[in-house]
Design a protein around this nucleic acid. Structure first.
Lengths: 252, 252
DNA sequence: TCATTTTAATGGTTCTACCTTTACGCGGCG
DNA sequence: CGCCGCGTAAAGGTAGAACCATTAAAATGA
Protein backbone atom coordinates (compact mmCIF):
# COMPACT_ATOMS: atom_id res chain seq x y z
CA UNK A 1 0.00 0.00 0.00
CA UNK A 2 2.93 2.34 -0.37
CA UNK A 3 2.06 5.18 -2.70
CA UNK A 4 3.88 4.82 -5.98
CA UNK A 5 0.86 5.75 -8.05
CA UNK A 6 1.32 9.50 -8.05
CA UNK A 7 -0.58 10.63 -11.16
CA UNK A 8 1.58 12.30 -13.77
CA UNK A 9 -0.81 13.88 -16.26
CA UNK A 10 1.62 16.35 -17.82
CA UNK A 11 -0.54 19.44 -17.83
CA UNK A 12 -2.76 19.19 -14.78
CA UNK A 13 -0.38 20.10 -12.01
CA UNK A 14 -1.55 18.98 -8.66
CA UNK A 15 -0.46 18.45 -5.10
CA UNK A 16 3.15 17.49 -5.21
CA UNK A 17 3.26 16.13 -1.71
CA UNK A 18 2.51 12.47 -1.43
CA UNK A 19 0.12 11.64 1.30
CA UNK A 20 1.22 9.17 3.87
CA UNK A 21 -1.19 6.30 4.16
CA UNK A 22 -2.15 7.02 7.75
CA UNK A 23 -2.98 10.61 6.79
CA UNK A 24 -5.32 9.34 4.15
CA UNK A 25 -7.09 7.19 6.71
CA UNK A 26 -7.31 10.10 9.16
CA UNK A 27 -8.80 12.29 6.50
CA UNK A 28 -11.43 9.79 5.45
CA UNK A 29 -12.63 9.12 8.98
CA UNK A 30 -12.50 12.80 9.88
CA UNK A 31 -14.61 13.68 6.87
CA UNK A 32 -17.11 11.00 7.77
CA UNK A 33 -17.46 12.46 11.24
CA UNK A 34 -17.69 16.08 10.13
CA UNK A 35 -20.16 15.23 7.39
CA UNK A 36 -22.36 13.44 9.86
CA UNK A 37 -21.99 10.01 8.30
CA UNK A 38 -20.57 9.04 11.68
CA UNK A 39 -22.43 10.51 14.62
CA UNK A 40 -21.50 11.05 18.23
CA UNK A 41 -21.53 7.74 20.05
CA UNK A 42 -21.20 5.62 16.92
CA UNK A 43 -18.71 2.82 17.20
CA UNK A 44 -16.24 2.23 14.41
CA UNK A 45 -15.49 -1.32 13.31
CA UNK A 46 -12.76 -3.19 15.15
CA UNK A 47 -9.17 -2.48 14.17
CA UNK A 48 -8.84 -5.76 12.35
CA UNK A 49 -11.97 -4.94 10.35
CA UNK A 50 -10.78 -1.44 9.51
CA UNK A 51 -7.51 -2.91 8.36
CA UNK A 52 -9.43 -4.89 5.76
CA UNK A 53 -11.61 -1.92 4.79
CA UNK A 54 -8.71 0.46 4.25
CA UNK A 55 -6.28 -2.15 3.03
CA UNK A 56 -3.47 -1.07 5.33
CA UNK A 57 -1.43 -2.72 8.01
CA UNK A 58 -2.58 -2.60 11.58
CA UNK A 59 0.31 -0.41 12.69
CA UNK A 60 -0.54 2.23 10.13
CA UNK A 61 -4.20 2.11 11.02
CA UNK A 62 -3.38 2.52 14.69
CA UNK A 63 -1.29 5.60 13.95
CA UNK A 64 -4.33 7.07 12.23
CA UNK A 65 -6.58 6.26 15.18
CA UNK A 66 -4.09 7.83 17.57
CA UNK A 67 -4.14 11.05 15.58
CA UNK A 68 -7.93 11.11 15.60
CA UNK A 69 -7.91 10.46 19.31
CA UNK A 70 -5.49 13.33 19.84
CA UNK A 71 -7.74 15.60 17.81
CA UNK A 72 -10.51 14.75 20.22
CA UNK A 73 -12.68 13.19 17.54
CA UNK A 74 -12.73 9.65 18.84
CA UNK A 75 -12.16 7.81 22.07
CA UNK A 76 -10.60 4.38 22.10
CA UNK A 77 -11.99 1.89 24.59
CA UNK A 78 -10.43 -1.32 25.75
CA UNK A 79 -11.75 -4.82 26.00
CA UNK A 80 -14.59 -6.61 24.30
CA UNK A 81 -17.18 -4.20 22.86
CA UNK A 82 -14.32 -1.73 22.90
CA UNK A 83 -12.95 0.16 19.94
CA UNK A 84 -13.11 3.66 18.58
CA UNK A 85 -16.29 5.59 19.35
CA UNK A 86 -17.05 9.05 18.02
CA UNK A 87 -16.81 11.61 20.79
CA UNK A 88 -19.01 14.61 21.35
CA UNK A 89 -17.16 17.67 20.14
CA UNK A 90 -15.92 19.81 23.01
CA UNK A 91 -13.62 22.81 23.35
CA UNK A 92 -11.20 20.61 25.26
CA UNK A 93 -8.64 20.21 22.49
CA UNK A 94 -8.50 23.99 22.21
CA UNK A 95 -7.90 24.18 25.94
CA UNK A 96 -5.15 21.60 25.70
CA UNK A 97 -3.23 23.22 22.91
CA UNK A 98 -3.60 26.62 24.50
CA UNK A 99 -2.27 25.16 27.73
CA UNK A 100 0.78 23.99 25.84
CA UNK A 101 1.38 27.47 24.48
CA UNK A 102 0.94 29.02 27.89
CA UNK A 103 3.25 26.62 29.58
CA UNK A 104 5.91 26.76 26.92
CA UNK A 105 6.01 30.49 26.61
CA UNK A 106 5.48 31.08 30.30
CA UNK A 107 2.56 33.40 30.01
CA UNK A 108 1.97 35.26 33.21
CA UNK A 109 -1.21 35.25 35.22
CA UNK A 110 -1.47 38.95 34.48
CA UNK A 111 -1.73 38.33 30.76
CA UNK A 112 -4.28 35.61 31.19
CA UNK A 113 -6.34 37.64 33.64
CA UNK A 114 -6.23 40.72 31.47
CA UNK A 115 -7.53 38.72 28.56
CA UNK A 116 -10.23 37.22 30.69
CA UNK A 117 -11.19 40.66 31.89
CA UNK A 118 -11.85 41.89 28.38
CA UNK A 119 -13.66 38.72 27.49
CA UNK A 120 -15.95 38.70 30.50
CA UNK A 121 -16.71 42.35 29.93
CA UNK A 122 -17.81 41.69 26.35
CA UNK A 123 -19.80 38.64 27.36
CA UNK A 124 -21.58 40.50 30.15
CA UNK A 125 -22.45 43.34 27.79
CA UNK A 126 -23.84 40.95 25.18
CA UNK A 127 -25.77 39.06 27.81
CA UNK A 128 -27.32 42.29 29.02
CA UNK A 129 -28.51 43.00 25.49
CA UNK A 130 -29.97 39.57 24.96
CA UNK A 131 -31.22 38.18 28.26
CA UNK A 132 -34.77 36.85 28.15
CA UNK A 133 -36.98 36.90 31.23
CA UNK A 134 -36.12 33.25 31.79
CA UNK A 135 -32.42 34.06 31.60
CA UNK A 136 -32.82 36.81 34.18
CA UNK A 137 -34.57 34.44 36.49
CA UNK A 138 -31.86 31.80 36.03
CA UNK A 139 -29.11 34.28 36.87
CA UNK A 140 -30.87 35.53 39.97
CA UNK A 141 -31.43 31.96 41.04
CA UNK A 142 -27.73 31.24 40.72
CA UNK A 143 -26.90 34.27 42.85
CA UNK A 144 -29.38 33.03 45.43
CA UNK A 145 -27.78 29.59 45.33
CA UNK A 146 -24.38 31.14 45.83
CA UNK A 147 -25.62 33.17 48.78
CA UNK A 148 -27.15 30.05 50.30
CA UNK A 149 -23.88 28.18 50.06
CA UNK A 150 -21.99 31.06 51.61
CA UNK A 151 -24.38 31.24 54.54
CA UNK A 152 -23.70 27.62 55.38
CA UNK A 153 -20.21 28.50 56.48
CA UNK A 154 -16.65 27.77 55.42
CA UNK A 155 -17.24 24.09 54.72
CA UNK A 156 -19.37 25.10 51.76
CA UNK A 157 -16.83 27.41 50.16
CA UNK A 158 -16.01 24.83 47.58
CA UNK A 159 -19.63 24.53 46.53
CA UNK A 160 -19.75 28.31 46.41
CA UNK A 161 -16.88 28.34 43.93
CA UNK A 162 -18.71 25.79 41.83
CA UNK A 163 -21.79 27.97 41.69
CA UNK A 164 -19.56 30.92 40.84
CA UNK A 165 -18.20 28.95 37.92
CA UNK A 166 -21.71 28.02 36.83
CA UNK A 167 -22.67 31.66 36.94
CA UNK A 168 -19.95 32.62 34.48
CA UNK A 169 -20.86 29.75 32.20
CA UNK A 170 -24.48 30.82 32.31
CA UNK A 171 -23.65 34.40 31.40
CA UNK A 172 -21.69 33.01 28.47
CA UNK A 173 -24.69 30.99 27.36
CA UNK A 174 -26.99 34.01 27.62
CA UNK A 175 -24.60 36.02 25.46
CA UNK A 176 -25.68 33.63 22.73
CA UNK A 177 -22.38 33.23 20.94
CA UNK A 178 -20.77 29.82 21.22
CA UNK A 179 -17.36 31.20 20.31
CA UNK A 180 -17.38 33.39 23.39
CA UNK A 181 -18.56 30.48 25.49
CA UNK A 182 -15.79 28.20 24.22
CA UNK A 183 -12.95 30.64 24.61
CA UNK A 184 -14.19 31.68 28.01
CA UNK A 185 -14.30 28.05 29.13
CA UNK A 186 -10.81 27.54 27.75
CA UNK A 187 -9.40 30.53 29.60
CA UNK A 188 -11.12 29.53 32.83
CA UNK A 189 -9.73 26.04 32.55
CA UNK A 190 -6.23 27.33 31.99
CA UNK A 191 -6.37 29.82 34.82
CA UNK A 192 -7.45 27.05 37.13
CA UNK A 193 -4.88 24.67 35.76
CA UNK A 194 -1.92 26.92 36.31
CA UNK A 195 -2.85 29.42 38.96
CA UNK A 196 -5.65 28.14 41.13
CA UNK A 197 -3.41 26.65 43.79
CA UNK A 198 -4.21 28.04 47.21
CA UNK A 199 -6.17 31.11 46.31
CA UNK A 200 -7.48 32.42 49.60
CA UNK A 201 -11.07 31.77 50.54
CA UNK A 202 -11.88 34.01 53.42
CA UNK A 203 -15.34 35.15 54.30
CA UNK A 204 -15.01 38.85 53.45
CA UNK A 205 -13.45 37.97 50.10
CA UNK A 206 -16.23 35.62 49.18
CA UNK A 207 -18.75 38.19 50.33
CA UNK A 208 -17.30 40.69 47.92
CA UNK A 209 -17.37 38.02 45.26
CA UNK A 210 -21.04 37.37 45.91
CA UNK A 211 -21.76 41.08 45.79
CA UNK A 212 -20.05 41.21 42.39
CA UNK A 213 -22.15 38.39 41.06
CA UNK A 214 -25.27 40.07 42.35
CA UNK A 215 -24.44 43.33 40.65
CA UNK A 216 -23.55 41.66 37.39
CA UNK A 217 -26.80 39.71 37.47
CA UNK A 218 -28.80 42.86 38.13
CA UNK A 219 -27.09 44.82 35.40
CA UNK A 220 -27.72 42.00 32.94
CA UNK A 221 -31.31 41.68 34.09
CA UNK A 222 -31.88 45.40 33.55
CA UNK A 223 -30.30 45.27 30.14
CA UNK A 224 -27.65 47.77 31.19
CA UNK A 225 -24.75 46.65 29.01
CA UNK A 226 -22.38 49.39 30.10
CA UNK A 227 -22.82 48.65 33.77
CA UNK A 228 -22.62 44.89 33.21
CA UNK A 229 -19.33 45.44 31.41
CA UNK A 230 -17.98 47.59 34.17
CA UNK A 231 -19.01 45.22 36.98
CA UNK A 232 -17.53 42.25 35.16
CA UNK A 233 -14.22 44.06 34.82
CA UNK A 234 -14.21 44.97 38.48
CA UNK A 235 -15.00 41.40 39.41
CA UNK A 236 -12.19 39.87 37.39
CA UNK A 237 -9.73 42.54 38.40
CA UNK A 238 -10.37 41.99 42.07
CA UNK A 239 -10.04 38.26 41.65
CA UNK A 240 -6.79 38.65 39.78
CA UNK A 241 -5.35 41.19 42.19
CA UNK A 242 -5.89 38.80 45.05
CA UNK A 243 -4.23 35.94 43.27
CA UNK A 244 -1.33 38.12 42.21
CA UNK A 245 -0.66 38.96 45.86
CA UNK A 246 -0.57 35.32 46.74
CA UNK A 247 1.57 34.51 43.77
CA UNK A 248 4.65 36.73 43.70
CA UNK A 249 5.53 37.65 40.12
CA UNK A 250 7.83 35.09 38.62
CA UNK A 251 11.07 36.83 37.81
CA UNK A 252 12.16 35.06 34.67
CA UNK B 1 7.08 -4.27 27.83
CA UNK B 2 3.42 -4.79 28.59
CA UNK B 3 2.59 -3.32 31.96
CA UNK B 4 1.99 -6.03 34.49
CA UNK B 5 4.05 -4.39 37.18
CA UNK B 6 1.34 -2.20 38.65
CA UNK B 7 2.55 -1.70 42.23
CA UNK B 8 0.24 -3.02 44.86
CA UNK B 9 1.61 -1.72 48.14
CA UNK B 10 -1.52 -2.08 50.19
CA UNK B 11 -1.51 1.29 51.87
CA UNK B 12 -0.09 3.72 49.35
CA UNK B 13 -2.99 4.18 47.04
CA UNK B 14 -1.98 5.70 43.73
CA UNK B 15 -3.18 6.37 40.26
CA UNK B 16 -5.55 3.59 39.41
CA UNK B 17 -5.35 4.15 35.69
CA UNK B 18 -2.63 2.21 34.04
CA UNK B 19 -0.63 4.25 31.65
CA UNK B 20 -0.30 2.99 28.18
CA UNK B 21 3.32 2.69 27.18
CA UNK B 22 3.08 5.19 24.34
CA UNK B 23 1.55 7.74 26.71
CA UNK B 24 4.51 7.36 28.99
CA UNK B 25 6.85 8.05 26.09
CA UNK B 26 4.80 11.08 25.01
CA UNK B 27 4.91 12.45 28.50
CA UNK B 28 8.65 12.06 28.88
CA UNK B 29 9.48 13.74 25.59
CA UNK B 30 6.89 16.46 26.16
CA UNK B 31 8.37 17.23 29.56
CA UNK B 32 11.83 17.39 28.06
CA UNK B 33 10.64 19.94 25.52
CA UNK B 34 8.67 22.06 27.96
CA UNK B 35 11.49 22.01 30.50
CA UNK B 36 13.93 23.19 27.87
CA UNK B 37 16.07 20.06 27.91
CA UNK B 38 15.11 19.81 24.26
CA UNK B 39 15.17 23.09 22.41
CA UNK B 40 13.57 24.26 19.19
CA UNK B 41 15.43 22.77 16.26
CA UNK B 42 16.99 19.94 18.25
CA UNK B 43 16.88 16.58 16.53
CA UNK B 44 15.82 13.54 18.51
CA UNK B 45 17.68 10.27 18.04
CA UNK B 46 16.54 7.99 15.25
CA UNK B 47 13.52 5.79 15.89
CA UNK B 48 15.60 2.70 16.22
CA UNK B 49 17.75 4.47 18.80
CA UNK B 50 14.76 5.75 20.76
CA UNK B 51 13.42 2.23 20.78
CA UNK B 52 16.51 1.15 22.67
CA UNK B 53 16.39 4.16 25.01
CA UNK B 54 12.76 3.66 25.99
CA UNK B 55 12.76 -0.09 25.78
CA UNK B 56 9.63 -0.27 23.66
CA UNK B 57 8.77 -1.64 20.27
CA UNK B 58 9.02 0.54 17.23
CA UNK B 59 5.29 0.57 16.62
CA UNK B 60 4.57 1.88 20.09
CA UNK B 61 7.29 4.49 19.80
CA UNK B 62 5.88 5.64 16.49
CA UNK B 63 2.43 6.07 18.03
CA UNK B 64 4.03 8.34 20.61
CA UNK B 65 5.81 10.37 17.95
CA UNK B 66 2.58 10.73 16.01
CA UNK B 67 0.86 12.15 19.05
CA UNK B 68 3.68 14.62 19.64
CA UNK B 69 3.54 15.60 15.99
CA UNK B 70 -0.20 16.16 16.26
CA UNK B 71 0.33 18.34 19.31
CA UNK B 72 2.62 20.48 17.20
CA UNK B 73 5.64 19.78 19.37
CA UNK B 74 7.75 17.94 16.81
CA UNK B 75 8.03 17.59 13.09
CA UNK B 76 9.02 14.31 11.50
CA UNK B 77 11.27 14.47 8.47
CA UNK B 78 11.91 11.76 5.95
CA UNK B 79 15.10 10.33 4.55
CA UNK B 80 18.65 10.28 5.84
CA UNK B 81 19.33 13.02 8.39
CA UNK B 82 15.59 12.90 8.96
CA UNK B 83 13.82 12.16 12.18
CA UNK B 84 11.93 14.08 14.80
CA UNK B 85 12.96 17.71 15.29
CA UNK B 86 11.53 19.99 17.95
CA UNK B 87 9.28 22.62 16.39
CA UNK B 88 8.92 26.23 17.39
CA UNK B 89 5.75 26.64 19.41
CA UNK B 90 3.01 28.38 17.46
CA UNK B 91 -0.69 29.03 17.98
CA UNK B 92 -1.39 26.78 15.02
CA UNK B 93 -2.66 23.78 17.00
CA UNK B 94 -5.14 26.10 18.71
CA UNK B 95 -6.28 27.29 15.31
CA UNK B 96 -6.65 23.74 14.09
CA UNK B 97 -8.72 22.49 16.99
CA UNK B 98 -10.87 25.59 16.92
CA UNK B 99 -11.41 25.03 13.22
CA UNK B 100 -12.66 21.55 14.02
CA UNK B 101 -15.15 22.95 16.53
CA UNK B 102 -16.32 25.58 14.10
CA UNK B 103 -16.79 23.16 11.26
CA UNK B 104 -18.45 20.51 13.34
CA UNK B 105 -20.90 22.79 15.07
CA UNK B 106 -21.44 24.96 12.04
CA UNK B 107 -20.69 28.24 13.67
CA UNK B 108 -21.94 31.10 11.58
CA UNK B 109 -19.85 33.91 10.24
CA UNK B 110 -21.93 36.22 12.40
CA UNK B 111 -20.76 34.51 15.58
CA UNK B 112 -17.16 34.54 14.52
CA UNK B 113 -17.30 38.15 13.40
CA UNK B 114 -19.03 39.25 16.57
CA UNK B 115 -16.34 37.64 18.62
CA UNK B 116 -13.67 39.23 16.51
CA UNK B 117 -15.35 42.58 16.91
CA UNK B 118 -15.12 42.44 20.68
CA UNK B 119 -11.59 41.16 20.51
CA UNK B 120 -10.32 43.82 18.13
CA UNK B 121 -12.02 46.47 20.21
CA UNK B 122 -10.24 45.36 23.35
CA UNK B 123 -6.94 45.04 21.55
CA UNK B 124 -7.22 48.49 20.03
CA UNK B 125 -8.03 49.99 23.40
CA UNK B 126 -5.07 48.29 25.05
CA UNK B 127 -2.79 49.32 22.22
CA UNK B 128 -3.91 52.93 22.63
CA UNK B 129 -2.93 52.79 26.28
CA UNK B 130 0.45 51.26 25.64
CA UNK B 131 1.78 52.44 22.30
CA UNK B 132 5.31 53.82 22.41
CA UNK B 133 6.46 56.49 19.97
CA UNK B 134 8.10 53.75 17.89
CA UNK B 135 4.82 51.81 17.83
CA UNK B 136 2.96 54.89 16.63
CA UNK B 137 5.44 55.38 13.85
CA UNK B 138 5.18 51.72 12.83
CA UNK B 139 1.39 51.89 12.64
CA UNK B 140 1.43 55.06 10.57
CA UNK B 141 3.99 53.51 8.27
CA UNK B 142 1.71 50.52 7.73
CA UNK B 143 -1.18 52.80 6.86
CA UNK B 144 1.08 54.60 4.40
CA UNK B 145 2.12 51.26 2.91
CA UNK B 146 -1.52 50.27 2.55
CA UNK B 147 -2.34 53.56 0.85
CA UNK B 148 0.58 53.11 -1.53
CA UNK B 149 -0.63 49.66 -2.53
CA UNK B 150 -4.12 50.94 -3.11
CA UNK B 151 -2.90 53.74 -5.33
CA UNK B 152 -1.22 51.26 -7.60
CA UNK B 153 -4.57 50.02 -8.78
CA UNK B 154 -6.60 46.80 -8.66
CA UNK B 155 -3.69 44.51 -9.39
CA UNK B 156 -2.28 45.39 -5.96
CA UNK B 157 -5.41 44.66 -4.00
CA UNK B 158 -3.97 41.41 -2.80
CA UNK B 159 -0.91 43.14 -1.42
CA UNK B 160 -3.23 45.64 0.21
CA UNK B 161 -5.01 42.86 2.03
CA UNK B 162 -1.69 41.54 3.22
CA UNK B 163 -0.77 44.91 4.67
CA UNK B 164 -4.20 45.08 6.26
CA UNK B 165 -3.52 41.78 7.93
CA UNK B 166 -0.11 42.99 9.08
CA UNK B 167 -1.75 46.05 10.55
CA UNK B 168 -4.03 43.98 12.75
CA UNK B 169 -1.16 41.78 13.83
CA UNK B 170 0.86 44.86 14.70
CA UNK B 171 -1.93 46.31 16.82
CA UNK B 172 -2.05 42.98 18.61
CA UNK B 173 1.67 43.17 19.28
CA UNK B 174 1.41 46.71 20.59
CA UNK B 175 -1.35 45.65 22.97
CA UNK B 176 1.41 43.72 24.67
CA UNK B 177 -0.53 40.61 25.64
CA UNK B 178 0.44 37.45 23.80
CA UNK B 179 -2.87 35.80 24.64
CA UNK B 180 -4.74 38.47 22.71
CA UNK B 181 -2.31 38.15 19.84
CA UNK B 182 -2.71 34.37 19.67
CA UNK B 183 -6.47 34.29 19.84
CA UNK B 184 -6.73 37.11 17.34
CA UNK B 185 -4.47 35.24 14.93
CA UNK B 186 -6.55 32.10 15.45
CA UNK B 187 -9.81 33.88 14.72
CA UNK B 188 -8.38 35.61 11.66
CA UNK B 189 -7.12 32.30 10.35
CA UNK B 190 -10.48 30.67 10.82
CA UNK B 191 -12.42 33.52 9.24
CA UNK B 192 -10.16 33.28 6.23
CA UNK B 193 -10.35 29.53 6.15
CA UNK B 194 -14.11 29.31 6.06
CA UNK B 195 -15.43 32.59 4.79
CA UNK B 196 -12.83 34.42 2.79
CA UNK B 197 -13.89 33.00 -0.57
CA UNK B 198 -14.69 35.74 -2.99
CA UNK B 199 -15.15 38.68 -0.67
CA UNK B 200 -15.54 41.65 -2.96
CA UNK B 201 -12.58 43.94 -3.50
CA UNK B 202 -13.88 47.07 -5.13
CA UNK B 203 -12.15 50.40 -4.96
CA UNK B 204 -14.68 52.27 -2.78
CA UNK B 205 -14.75 49.38 -0.32
CA UNK B 206 -11.02 49.26 0.04
CA UNK B 207 -10.95 53.04 0.37
CA UNK B 208 -13.29 52.80 3.33
CA UNK B 209 -11.11 50.07 4.69
CA UNK B 210 -8.03 52.26 4.40
CA UNK B 211 -9.85 55.11 6.10
CA UNK B 212 -10.71 52.76 8.97
CA UNK B 213 -7.11 51.75 9.38
CA UNK B 214 -6.06 55.37 9.34
CA UNK B 215 -8.53 56.32 12.04
CA UNK B 216 -7.60 53.37 14.21
CA UNK B 217 -3.94 54.21 13.86
CA UNK B 218 -4.55 57.82 14.81
CA UNK B 219 -6.69 56.93 17.80
CA UNK B 220 -4.03 54.54 19.02
CA UNK B 221 -1.29 57.09 18.39
CA UNK B 222 -3.18 59.69 20.42
CA UNK B 223 -3.76 57.25 23.23
CA UNK B 224 -7.52 57.58 22.85
CA UNK B 225 -8.64 54.14 23.95
CA UNK B 226 -12.35 54.83 23.66
CA UNK B 227 -12.08 56.05 20.12
CA UNK B 228 -9.74 53.25 19.13
CA UNK B 229 -12.29 50.78 20.47
CA UNK B 230 -15.11 52.40 18.61
CA UNK B 231 -13.24 52.60 15.29
CA UNK B 232 -12.15 48.98 15.55
CA UNK B 233 -15.74 47.90 16.06
CA UNK B 234 -16.90 49.94 13.09
CA UNK B 235 -14.15 48.45 10.97
CA UNK B 236 -14.96 44.85 11.77
CA UNK B 237 -18.68 45.40 11.52
CA UNK B 238 -18.39 46.88 8.07
CA UNK B 239 -16.17 44.05 6.95
CA UNK B 240 -18.58 41.48 8.30
CA UNK B 241 -21.64 43.12 6.88
CA UNK B 242 -20.13 43.02 3.43
CA UNK B 243 -19.26 39.38 3.69
CA UNK B 244 -22.67 38.51 5.06
CA UNK B 245 -24.28 40.01 1.97
CA UNK B 246 -22.09 37.91 -0.27
CA UNK B 247 -22.69 34.83 1.78
CA UNK B 248 -26.41 34.14 2.15
CA UNK B 249 -27.12 32.54 5.52
CA UNK B 250 -26.83 28.78 5.33
CA UNK B 251 -30.24 27.38 6.00
CA UNK B 252 -29.44 24.11 7.69
C1' DT C 1 -31.79 -15.77 41.72
C1' DC C 2 -27.39 -14.35 42.35
C1' DA C 3 -22.46 -14.84 42.53
C1' DT C 4 -18.51 -16.78 40.21
C1' DT C 5 -15.98 -18.50 36.47
C1' DT C 6 -15.07 -18.91 31.72
C1' DT C 7 -14.76 -17.29 27.23
C1' DA C 8 -14.19 -14.56 23.33
C1' DA C 9 -13.76 -10.01 21.30
C1' DT C 10 -10.83 -6.28 21.03
C1' DG C 11 -7.22 -3.02 21.87
C1' DG C 12 -1.97 -2.94 23.32
C1' DT C 13 2.67 -4.44 22.37
C1' DT C 14 6.44 -6.74 20.24
C1' DC C 15 9.27 -8.45 16.42
C1' DT C 16 10.87 -8.79 11.89
C1' DA C 17 11.20 -7.88 7.22
C1' DC C 18 11.02 -4.94 3.52
C1' DC C 19 9.88 -0.47 0.89
C1' DT C 20 10.62 4.58 0.10
C1' DT C 21 12.82 8.81 0.53
C1' DT C 22 16.73 11.63 0.76
C1' DA C 23 21.48 13.62 1.95
C1' DC C 24 25.95 12.84 0.77
C1' DG C 25 29.92 11.22 -1.41
C1' DC C 26 32.28 9.26 -5.27
C1' DG C 27 33.51 8.91 -9.93
C1' DG C 28 33.27 9.92 -14.70
C1' DC C 29 32.78 13.31 -18.23
C1' DG C 30 33.00 17.73 -20.33
C1' DC D 1 38.34 22.25 -12.57
C1' DG D 2 33.65 21.77 -12.09
C1' DC D 3 29.50 19.56 -12.18
C1' DC D 4 26.32 16.08 -13.31
C1' DG D 5 24.62 11.70 -12.17
C1' DC D 6 24.46 7.68 -9.83
C1' DG D 7 25.09 4.64 -6.01
C1' DT D 8 24.89 4.03 -1.15
C1' DA D 9 23.45 4.15 3.36
C1' DA D 10 20.63 6.24 6.96
C1' DA D 11 16.27 7.11 8.38
C1' DG D 12 11.29 7.05 8.30
C1' DG D 13 6.98 4.33 6.29
C1' DT D 14 4.43 0.04 5.79
C1' DA D 15 3.24 -4.74 6.26
C1' DG D 16 2.09 -8.93 8.72
C1' DA D 17 2.00 -12.19 12.28
C1' DA D 18 2.13 -13.47 16.96
C1' DC D 19 1.10 -12.82 21.52
C1' DC D 20 -0.43 -10.08 25.87
C1' DA D 21 -4.05 -7.55 28.63
C1' DT D 22 -8.59 -5.96 29.42
C1' DT D 23 -13.32 -6.30 29.65
C1' DA D 24 -18.24 -7.36 28.65
C1' DA D 25 -21.08 -10.99 28.27
C1' DA D 26 -22.23 -15.69 28.43
C1' DA D 27 -22.03 -19.99 30.93
C1' DT D 28 -21.94 -22.25 35.21
C1' DG D 29 -22.98 -23.50 39.77
C1' DA D 30 -24.59 -22.73 44.52
Amino acid sequence: MVRTDRPKSPLSFQEAKQNKVFEDVVEQIEEAILDGRLKTGDRLPAERELVKLFGTSRGTLREALRVLEQKGLIEIRLGVRGGAVVRPVTPEPVTESLALLIRHQRVSLEHLAEFREGLEANVAALAAQRATPADREALRQLVADARAELEQGPEHYKQFMRVDSLFHTEVGRIAGNPVYAWILATIHANIERFFDRKLPRTAPLLDENLQDLHEIAEAVAQGDAARARERAIRHVRRFCGIMAEEDPPASD
